[in-house]
Design a protein around this nucleic acid. Structure first.
Length: 574
RNA sequence: CGGUGAUUGGCGCAGCUUGGUAGCGCACUUGGUUUGGGUCCAAGGGGUCGCAGGUUCAAAUCCUGCAUCACCGACCA
């Protein structure tokens, strides 16, 4: 490609609305332009990168035995009513009507459509297992789109769905997909981790997320410092502290804590560490037969945070988790939220494992402006159950039994789920099994955020001059930069010749044939992040040489013109 | 959805307090100059100042409403 016949669209100044580095660089390097909130046009360079990512994903999907399809983005509401998600999904599902006033949705995901397709096409167990995938545009009406294409409303996703006669078959495909995902991210040249995850609203049980590690990531991931264990921070189990609980030393007494309502305020007032205080959170319990929701008290150590996901999974706790109102708190314990405590409380009490290990601790006195000190389990509070309801913190022992947890941030670029029969049951998608009986299929689903990968790769690979693409997804492999070609016939001749030779050898070259000064060319090629560049100048031409420079390492060397193609082939393949 | 802020040429911004001819840098066009790291000089084109209403002799500027966008949070996963 010649720059004179290309749309470079690089800009010097960063548009004001970009916050994260990938967004800034995607705008400056001419990869995307914003059309509206969370919607982006892809310029030629952006498309080239996206195609590279798609090709790798496509190859690995095919290798894993999945077959490519293409499903409509506009989907009739009936299917979503049939699965139940028409009612359960919130405004993230974009709904609209056609000219006949029929309801439609803009597909945020395709479980409904694929399950409908498969239930019509597949009738026998002999046709299973079956894996289908597509690479296509999705639309999710995010409440707050941000970080450029990283959390856009319209984005490109690879979504695959597998259909099985039973769990064992699903597990096999799930494992194959897991490996395919590892292959994908290895080939993309990204620093990533598979982590255990919650399956959330999509449904199902077993689930892994694939995260690209980056400080700007929206998700927190917990890793063991000595084993392979990695989990979404919401999923990581907080183990009970080692050893037995210390014996009570102090007797129960009441202390005035005027104007101290938070754990931090109480700790400061009393001159103690927040870890010696137990905080009591009142939430709604599960509705009983009469529709009443009794309150439930959740007790945590003062320095720990409630994990809402863990809490709402407990029986007796309402899901989604809902905190008690001020009136409800007052009615149950006779004090405002700042002074609630478990002593004498008549509701069900669920204690975090770490909090259950405390002795001689401090709690609210259920009396405004007072706390209790020297509180001890069993002696002062007899009825309670213990559960894991907190977020893990760095330094906690790893649930796998090896090492301590460290917390890093990641960008979720892939997510695989074992869906089970959630959608196949709702849509009555079954086959005749070996006994000739109708049997509901078991499903898995597997997503890769293609456009998000582009941004994530930039988050991980950039410097003060711009993007540094991994070779596998660079828009061009080589930048060919002639110095003042318009003034030197022999530079023009060498440049043209190298361009022809490299292109003929199947190498993607961006030949900067603009009549620009050298500095402009260098700056643009570095901003775009082309991994290898060749500078042709009078300086080295007398020796029949050109200069090579590596974008990532900064390594420079002289290449003989006669060997350029072979040398570049070596550098781009290894 | 709550909070904060923004909206002036393609991009980045000033002007608004104190109403009176719409400006700067980049980019673009033309000529010259320069040529191994975003040259320099000169000339030029391009803006109903987000929209609607109000106040005023006069509104980019003051008032009211609306829209759009971004950031923080919640939500989602």
């Amino acid at each position: 490609m010649r720059t004179s016949q290309y749309l470079l669209s690089t800009v010097k100044e960063t548009p004001a609305d970009a916050e994260v580095i990938s967004h800034k660089l995607m705008l400056r390097a001419g990869l995307v332009r914003r059309l509206g909130s969370g919607m982006f046009s892809y310029l030629p360079t952006g498309v080239r990168v996206m195609r590279k990512v798609e090709d790798i994903v496509r190859q690995e999907m095919n290798k894993a035995g999945a077959i490519e399809v293409l499903l409509p983005m506009v989907q009739p509401a009936e299917l979503w009513q049939e699965s139940g998600r028409w009612d359960t999904m919130d405004a993230e599902l974009l709904r609209f009507k056609d000219r006949h006033q029929r309801d439609y949705v803009l597909g945020p995901t395709h479980e409904e459509v694929i399950t409908d397709l498969v239930r019509r096409e597949i009738t026998s167990y002999k046709q299973l297992p079956l894996s289908l995938y597509q690479i296509q545009t999705k639309f999710r009406d995010e409440r707050r789109p941000r970080f450029g294409v990283m959390r856009a409303r319209e984005f490109i996703m690879k979504d695959a769905y597998s259909f099985h006669l039973g769990q064992q078959s699903l597990q096999q495909t799930y494992d194959a997909m897991y490996n395919a995902y590892c292959n994908i991210f290895n080939r993309l040249g990204l620093d990533y981790r598979p982590v255990q995850a919650d399956s959330g609203a999509i449904g199902g049980s077993v689930s892994h997320e694939f995260h690209v590690l980056a400080a700007s990531g929206e998700d927190a991931i917990a890793f063991s410092d000595t084993s392979d264990y990695a989990a979404n921070i919401e999923m990581a189990e907080a183990l009970a502290p080692e050893g037995s609980r210390p014996a009570p030393q102090l007797s129960l007494s009441e202390i005035a804590t005027p104007a101290a309502n938070t754990v931090a305020e109480v700790a400061e007032l009393l001159g103690v560490d927040t870890s010696t205080i137990a905080k009591t959170l009142l939430v709604l319990g599960e509705a009983d037969d009469a529709g009443q929701q009794p309150l439930v008290a959740l007790i945590l150590r003062g320095d720990h945070e409630l994990n809402e996901l863990k809490a709402e999974k407990l029986s007796g706790v309402a899901s989604p988790l809902q905190f008690a109102s001020d009136e409800q708190v007052l009615a149950v314990c006779g004090a405002a939220t700042g002074s609630v405590g478990p002593v004498g409380l008549t509701v069900n009490i669920i204690v975090d494992r770490a909090a259950a290990h405390m002795a001689d601790f401090i709690v609210g006195a259920n009396k405004d402006g007072y706390h209790l000190t020297g509180v001890n389990w069993d002696r002062d509070i007899s009825q309670y159950q213990v559960a894991d309801i907190r977020n893990i913190v760095a330094g906690d022992p790893s649930p796998c039994g090896f090492g301590q947890l460290v917390i890093k941030r990641g960008i979720e670029v892939g997510h695989i789920f074992q869906l089970g029969e959630k959608y196949s049951t709702a849509l009555k998608a079954g086959v005749l099994n070996e006994e000739g009986k109708h049997q509901i299929m078991t499903m898995g689903c597997y997503g890769v955020g293609v456009s998000r990968i582009v941004a994530a790769a930039i988050e991980q690979n950039n410097d003060e001059y711009g993007i540094i693409w991994p070779d596998a997804i660079a828009p061009f492999q080589v930048a060919l930069i002639p110095m003042n070609m318009h003034k030197s016939a022999r530079i023009a001749e060498v440049a043209e010749r190298l361009y022809q030779q490299l292109t003929a050898a199947g190498i993607e070259v961006l030949f900067d044939d603009r009549r620009e000064r050298p500095g402009v060319m260098f700056a643009d090629m570095e901003l775009i992040g082309i991994p290898h560049s060749i500078v042709i100048g009078e300086r080295n031409l007398d020796n029949q040489q050109v200069e090579y420079k590596n974008r990532r390492s900064g390594e420079k060397m002289l290449l003989d013109i006669s060997n350029v193609v072979a040398d570049i082939q070596l550098k781009t393949t290894c």
